[in-house]
Every structure is written in C-alpha cells, then in structure tokens.
Design a protein around this nucleic acid. Structure first.
Length: 122
RNA sequence: GCAGAAAGCCGGGCAGCCGCCCUCCGAAGCCUUGUGCGAAGGAGGGAGGAAAGUCCGGGCUUCACGGAAACACGGUGCCGGGGAAAUCCCGGGCGGGGCGACCCGACGGAAAGUGCAGCAGAAAGUAAACCGCUUCGGAUUUGUCUGGAGCAAGGGUGAAAGGGUGCGGUAAGAGCGCACCGCGCUUCUGGCAACAGGGGCGGCAUUGUAAACCCCACCGGAAGCAAGACCGAAUAGGGACUGCGCACGGGGCGUUUCCGCCUCGCGGUCCGGGUUGGUCGCUUGAGGCGUCUGGCAACAGGCGUCCCAGAUGAAUGGCUGUCCUCGACAGAACCCGGCUUACAGGCUCUCUGCCAUG
RNA sequence: GGCGCGGUGGCAGAGUGGCUAUGCAGAGGACUGCAAAUCCUUGUACGCCGGUUCGAUUCCGGCCCGUGCCU
C-alpha cells in the first residue's frame, strides 16, 4: 500500500509563504477531526504539498514537530496515488492530530478528499 | 538497618518493512570535456543536559571613531588563585542555620555630606520625662491633692528608646566606680591577604537605611548571522571628477573647553547601484576521548587518538514484533564559556547521625 | 532566530517606600405619574515566587502571560 519512490518524486513541497497565502485565499477547504485540508489549482502542473502547524495549535516545539511528521506520513501514504496534477494541497494540523490513531488520520484525509470531489474511488 | 549530606553519571533497549536531511563514492546519462554535474545504487553520520529563558561574558561581522582632560550614563564590590572574559569556578576568611556530614550569604563605606523613619509614644537622634521613684514645703474631709528640687531603675508605646549582665554606691538613682562582655584607639604576634589571637589605653561617644541620593576603587563604543559578503531584472535614489557660484557664515565629530579635521548650491561627464530569488557566512573548535605530570582544588601542560548535525516550510516519522523497572522535562538554526528555570526514574563513589550486633 | 514594551477592580485609566485616585458599568436609595439625566451610598484590584527594608504596588532578582519590530 505504500507509495513508491517514483510516485513521491511527483510531489513538490510548497516552500514560500506566498504559496500558502494563495492556497488559503483562492482554494477550498474541508475540516475533519484530525486535520484540515486546503486545495487550490496552480499553474505549474505539479502536485504541490505543504504543511502548517502554527504556535496556536500547541506551544511545545516538540509536539508541533510530531504533528508535522504524522501529517507528512499520512500525505505520503495517500496523496501520491490520488492527487490531481496541477493542484496544491495544504494540510493543517490540529491539537487532535497528536493523539489520534494513525488509521483514523488516514480515514480523515480520504474523507476530506472525497468531500471536495478530488477523489474518484474510495 | 533507618534517616540524611555531598559529588559525578545515565536519560528506554533490540529487530524487521517503508520513508526523511547531510557528506563521500558513483555504472547509465548530460553538457559549458572538467580533479564537472549526477536520477538508480553503495558507504558513513544525523538533536540536549538542559538544544529552553535570552540573564551575563566572549569570538565573529558591520557601523561609528582625530587627540587629551573633565563630565554624564551603566555595571561590579571580603581576600587569594583559576580563566579569553564574566553577576563564572575553586580555596580561604567573616556572618547565619543544622546534633552532625554539610548548606546559605548583592559580604566596600553610615565620625564626607544630604534625605527618609507613617501610626503609636513624653521623647525618633544636639535627647527627652507620660505613669513613676526620692526629698523639701504647703493644704487636708487622713483617702489624698498641690508647688519646688533631684533621678531615669521599673511600667507603657514602637521595627528601633542613646551599651549589656552582676556587684558596689545613693535620699532615690545614674559608667558615678569596679569586674566580665561589647565598642573605639593603639601596639605586638601569626598569615601573601581577608582576618584571627594577645597586651595597653579610653570610659560610652558611634540608631537604622546606600537593592535612597551618594562617596571610594575598578570595568565598559554601538548593534547584531534577519550581522554581513558575493551573483543578479525593472524603477527611484547614490558616489567620483570637473566648471561656475559661495564663506569674518552654517552644520558634523556623545556634551563642554582647546587645538585639529570634514562638509555645503547649480550644471556636465563617468562609475556604480541591488528588491524577489540564489550562493557563501556554516561549522576544526578557548573541541571531544584516553593517559601521564604539577596543583588541596578550580585548572594548566605533555603525549596519543577521533572528526562527531548543518537544515532553510526547516531533517529522527509511520506500521509491527519483543524485553523490562512501562520511558520525565523537552527539538540544534553562527559558535563557545557561565548562570537561571523544567525534569519520571535509575546508577556509582564518599561522608554524617541514630539503632542493633561482633 | 534576534531585539524591545507592558501586566493595577467587570472595563478603561492615573499614581507613589507608609490608607491605591478617577470615569464607565453593577447594586441600593433620593428625585419623577413612569423613565432618562442628576445627586447620595456601596462592593470589587496592584500577574506569581523570593530578597532588601520596621514596612514593597513601588526598589532588586527569577518565573508566567500578553504585545510590537527586524526576512
């Protein structure tokens, strides 16, 4: 079920603050228990992926890092196979992301994708 | 055995699959043919004792800076040593706490000057006298009231009442006298010193506060890797040279004084300029480990050995098995030395008190 | 990552080494036919922990929280 290295190579990490603001302003979003997904079309044709865990989610740097890592693991398991080219995805962490079982996190991301009509088959 | 004190150390382990960051090698491939780049693949490394708070001290970088003196501002404050330095460390002294091992201390100066000490109290710093004590006189309903003189022992107020305790002394008292303690001056001895101990003299003056102003001694330019350097579109602004104009003038170099230096308005020519982004700075360092020597120690030196994160939306995760004591506080962002704060549990060594036994 | 600023009743906002003003809001009363406005009365606070001092909101350390600036 894991993504191959070839599939992972198709994902491009969003690096600039401007990219994140663009996705937030122009894209759509869906909230689930474990995470929030934002998505917007881009002009490059690549599949873009970014992660946001702000200081308002948790004040501890250790726990913020762990939330980001779990989001990265979830994204690496699902997005390479299902993501649409020419779309930027931004995953936003929540306090529950830290303690939620991993299987539930996978279900959360699929649910968000489905609700936003970005998933053909569940 | 129980209770405690001090120093140092560790901070889940092992295994499998899929992934992340860096360095080196690199068949295929690419071009600008080079000691080049490099998908696949291989080898190695990959958070902390506090990485934290940013409270101190440095390195490094840029800016500022002509010199001298004074002033201003900030910091430090027993002594000796260590250290690049420090509000750091070690040892000692003094003071305080503990039966003790041991721990704690912003620990210069209050006779250089100024300020402050509310309320209470008679009086708050040249002492003073509310209740009192003693004595002399007067009145008297014999309870006491009142005037003069002397006194500060006792009571009361306060955080603090102008040396303390005891004896003598006295009308009652008082350093009034004496002894001891404290204090001050002086001298001797020990110690590098802080300081300690002894002798002599004085005869009680010298309340507290300097984390109040201050005095003394010593130290200090400012900002910070988002510093800064390089490569680089557009636009606005900048610098140099030169011509003309202008000056017993104005401005600047922390302030002032003295000497000194720089600079000014308009035109022309040339040079450059650096936002987004990228590269460097970026990890070999007052470095770690082992050992020997000197030193009570902090630490220093010699020898051997190792290279041990370097990201830039920012790297350690996901899933699973297994063991145990079931895992705390917590994530590098230029780098070091300290301090402070947070922290489950465990280990090592030394020491103290009590109990029991030999 | 670095550098600053601040924390005083429910809210705003002065202040200073010895009872912390003032305004708005709240409660009660007066005035009114009933209200508003006005007047009177009243409760509630110095972020937390230590130290200096006889005494700290103030002075000095250390924590906690909030907030701003620098790419």
């Amino acid at each position: 079920m894991h993504a191959t290295a070839h599939q992972l190579a198709q994902l491009q990490t969003l690096k600039k603050r401007a990219d994140f603001i663009k996705v937030q302003k122009t894209g759509r979003r869906w909230v689930s228990n474990g995470l929030i997904l934002q998505a917007a079309a881009n002009a490059s044709g690549y599949k873009g992926i970014g992660f946001t865990v702000s200081k308002r989610v948790d004040k501890s740097a250790v726990r913020r890092n762990r939330i980001k890592r779990r989001l990265r693991a979830v994204a690496a398991d699902i997005l390479p196979q299902t993501a649409v080219s020419g779309t930027d995805y931004v995953l936003i962490g929540r306090p529950e992301t830290l303690s939620r079982p991993y299987a539930d996190l996978l279900r959360d991301l699929r649910w968000c994708l489905k609700k936003m009509d970005l998933l053909d088959n569940v």
